[in-house]
Simulated scan of single mutants.
Amino acid sequence: MKFADEFKAAVTPRAALLVIGVLALQLLFITSYVGALHSPEPKDVPYGVVAPVPAVAQQAEQRLDQLPGSPLDPRVVADRETARQQIMDRKIDGALIIDPRGTTDTLLVASGGGAALSNVLQVLTVRIEAAEQRTVRTIDVAPASSEDFNGLSSFYLVIGWCVGGYLCASIMSISAGALRASPQRAGIRIGAMALVSVVGGIGGALIVGDTILGALPGSFWGLTGLGALVTFAVGAITLALQELTGVVGIGLAVLLVVVAGNPSAGGAFPLPMLPPFWQAIGPWLPPGAGTWAARSIAYFEGNALTKSLLVLSAWAVLGVAVTLLVAALRERKHRPAQS
Rank of each mutant, 00 (worst) to 15 (best):
Val56Gln: 14
Ala57Gly: 15
Gln58Ile: 03
Gln58Lys: 14
Gln59Thr: 12
Gln59Asp: 10
Ala60Arg: 05
Glu61Met: 15
Gln62Arg: 15
Gln62Leu: 07
Gln62His: 13
Leu64Asp: 02
Leu64Cys: 01
Gln66Asn: 12
Pro68Arg: 03
Ser70Met: 05
Ser70Pro: 05
Leu72Lys: 03
Asp73Ala: 15
Val76Trp: 11
Val77Asp: 06
Asp79Tyr: 05
Ala83Ser: 10
Gln85Cys: 03
Gln85Arg: 15
Gln86Arg: 11
Ile87Cys: 02
Lys91His: 06
Ile92Leu: 10
Ile92Ala: 10
Gly94Glu: 04
Ala95Val: 01
Ala95Glu: 04
Leu96Gln: 08
Asp99Arg: 08
Asp99Gln: 09
Pro100Ala: 07
Arg101Ile: 07
Arg101Glu: 13
Gly102Leu: 05
Gly102Thr: 08
Thr103Ala: 12
Thr104Lys: 07
Asp105Pro: 11
Asp105Arg: 04
Asp105Asn: 13
Asp105Gly: 07
Asp105Tyr: 01
Thr106Ser: 02
Leu107Phe: 03
Val109Pro: 10
Ala110Leu: 05
Gly112Met: 02
Gly112Arg: 11
Ser118Asp: 08
Asn119Ile: 02
Val120Thr: 12
Val120Asp: 12
Leu121Ile: 01
Gln122Asn: 10
Gln122Ala: 08
Val123Asp: 03
Val123Ser: 10
Thr125Ala: 04
Thr125Pro: 00
Val126Ser: 00
Val126Lys: 00
Arg127Tyr: 00
Ile128His: 08
Ile128Gly: 03
Glu129Tyr: 01
Ala130Pro: 07
Ala130Ser: 12
